[in-house]
């Protein structure tokens, strides 16, 4: 999927020819200590940063040169580390805007958006998947941080992507909220491929099928959670610093 990607910031090599191959339907986690290049790699894949070298493909299509919007049309969805929601709109309106994003609805002037039953249905189904059905008519600004994080995932689902990139979905959540969110991410359809950056090791070990460990821009280990947990190299560079 991503081959020998590199990206420099000034003199710093943030990502050094990293390779990442994620099979369809997999839940992949990217982990590594701060400054390992996770976010840079993530942003290269979502299109917010251009790589200095290397190639990115999703579902067999070369997207290296494509814009964020073009990638979204090809089925790449993402969530944001800091929630990017429409705070003064309702949950339903937020989800509708995500569901209608590629439908060319924005220049329909005189009919109500509420009559778009197919899109409303998509929006409601995504609300159901992230446990937000009871909050559909509530303003997002009135929701707790935990529910807002759930909506952030729901927004990505509403766009019906084939690949969702989750950028620290549990950022700022309490332990109990983390459990809810982890359960909900685990429950997502296997038709969707997930790539996840997350600091919470318990969450990563619980969700991921396969873990890629980055250090100083390079992949230093890959494997199933149980392997990564016992990998000496990984424990030295990452887990050791936390669980020492």
């Amino acid at each position: 999927m991503a081959t020998s990607l590199s990206r420099n910031f000034g003199g710093v090599q943030a990502v050094r020819s990293a390779d990442l191959k994620v099979p369809v339907g997999e839940r992949r986690a990217l982990i590594g200590p701060n400054g390992a290049g996770k976010t840079t790699l993530f942003n290269i894949i979502t299109g917010e940063l251009a790589p200095d070298a290397g190639k990115i493909e999703i579902f067999g299509i070369d997207i290296t040169k494509k814009t964020v919007q073009e990638r979204a049309k090809l089925g790449l969805g993402r969530t944001y580390q800091i929630s990017q929601l429409f705070l003064n709109l309702t949950v339903e309106e937020n989800l509708f805007l995500a569901a209608a994003a590629d439908q060319g609805m924005e220049f329909h002037f005189l009919s109500s958006w509420r009559v778009r039953s197919k899109l409303i249905q998509w929006a409601h189904r995504s609300a159901e998947q992230v446990n937000l059905t009871p909050y559909l008519s509530q303003r997002v600004s009135e929701l707790s941080h935990g529910l807002q994080r759930q909506l952030e995932v729901g927004m990505a689902i509403a766009m019906r992507p084939r690949l969702i990139m989750l950028d620290e979905p549990a950022a700022g959540l309490s332990p109990s909220e983390r459990l809810i969110l982890a359960g909900l991410i685990k429950g997502l359809s296997r038709e969707v491929t997930l790539i996840l950056i997350e600091h919470d090791m318990e969450m990563v070990l619980g969700i991921a099928d396969w873990i890629t460990v980055l250090q100083r821009g390079s992949v230093i280990a890959e494997g199933v959670p149980s392997e990564i947990r016992t990998n000496q190299k990984v424990q030295d560079v990452y887990l050791g610093t936390i669980y020492a």
Binding site: L85, L87, N88, L89, F107, S112, W113
Partner: peptide
């Protein structure tokens, strides 16, 4: 009508974010 339309909702989205 405009305020209720998909266009109106998109405008609200732009206002918010």
């Amino acid at each position: 009508l405009l305020a209720k339309s998909p266009f109106g909702l998109a405008l609200n989205g732009i206002r918010e974010n």
